[in-house]
Write a protein that binds this DNA or RNA. Structure first.
Length: 262
DNA sequence: ATGGTGGACAATCCA
């Protein structure tokens, strides 16, 4: 069995974080890095810096906002961009899928949702239903599949810094947790990080607007790696790499990594 | 105390 290493990272502009990402790839050498919020049109995607360190890029972007990419050592197969469900009215580049070394990977940037009661919040809840229909169309709960990315929902109380205060806020609202749970239960998804780490205060996101949020542990665990049961049974490790968050110009998210024997 | 900062991109929008 060979080791399969996958990571996810919300870059908040792939061009602004290029050095952070290429340095990290050089150090961790994953088979796959899934990126969200690339914030770049396809014609301007920085393919060259990745090619120079031996990585191939598949990307689906738009001007200024959103944008996702799958960066791999070996060129992937079966690349798909967007839901393709006809409901992508205003351009919303939030999903890219590919099969890497035989492992199907779906990388999503789930809508942030603004605030409960808003149109954006309703769009976010609906987006989970569209994702479920998409997954049921192309994949099966009984075969290996990874769903990863910035999911923009903290599943449990231990996944936010102050559950009593934050309950009902966007990202930690019961309706969002129910929407996520409906999808994970439908597909039997295992939260791979929670297979290995039970402790609270394990975060992947810290708000830029809160001063010294990392040092004060004011974080959220909203980036996830989900695997179907048959694949999760072959997981070997999962961890949050906090080091890039300590760099001078970090993203507000950090890297989440999982390994499988496949 | 309803702010704060960062990025894209060219006045605000998004997170």
């Amino acid at each position: 069995m060979a080791n399969f290493k996958i990571a996810t990272f919300n870059a908040n502009s792939i061009r602004a974080r290029l050095g952070i990402i290429t340095d990290w790839l050089g150090r961790e050498a994953p088979d796959v890095l899934c990126v969200q919020e690339t914030k770049v049109q396809d014609k301007d995607f920085p393919v060259e810096p990745f090619a120079q360190i031996g990585y191939h890029c598949e990307y689906f972007g738009q001007k200024s906002y959103n944008g996702v990419a799958i960066i791999t050592k070996e060129p992937p197969a079966d690349v798909r961009k967007g839901f393709g469900d006809g409901a992508e009215t205003q351009e919303q580049a939030r999903l890219i899928a590919a099969t890497v070394r035989g492992v199907p990977v779906v990388n999503t940037y789930v809508p942030q949702g603004f605030e409960p009661g808003s149109e954006k919040f309703a769009f976010k809840l609906e987006w989970f239903k569209r994702l479920r229909a998409y997954l049921e169309k192309y994949y099966s709960p009984d075969t290996p599949l990874i769903w990863t990315g910035d999911i923009n929902v903290a599943p449990e109380d231990r996944d936010v810094y102050d559950p009593a205060k934050l309950r009902g806020h966007c990202g930690f609202h019961p309706d969002e947790q129910a929407a996520l749970a409906a999808l994970t239960e439908a597909f039997g998804f295992v939260d791979v990080f929670r297979k290995y780490v039970d402790e609270p205060e394990q975060y992947t996101f810290w708000d830029f607007r809160l001063p010294r949020s990392v040092q004060r542990k004011l974080g959220w665990r909203i980036d996830h790696i989900f695997a179907t049961k048959t694949l999760a049974a072959r997981s070997a490790h999962c961890f949050i790499d906090i080091e890039p968050r300590k760099l001078p110009k970090p993203s507000d998210h950090t890297f989440l990594v999982a390994q499988f024997d496949v």
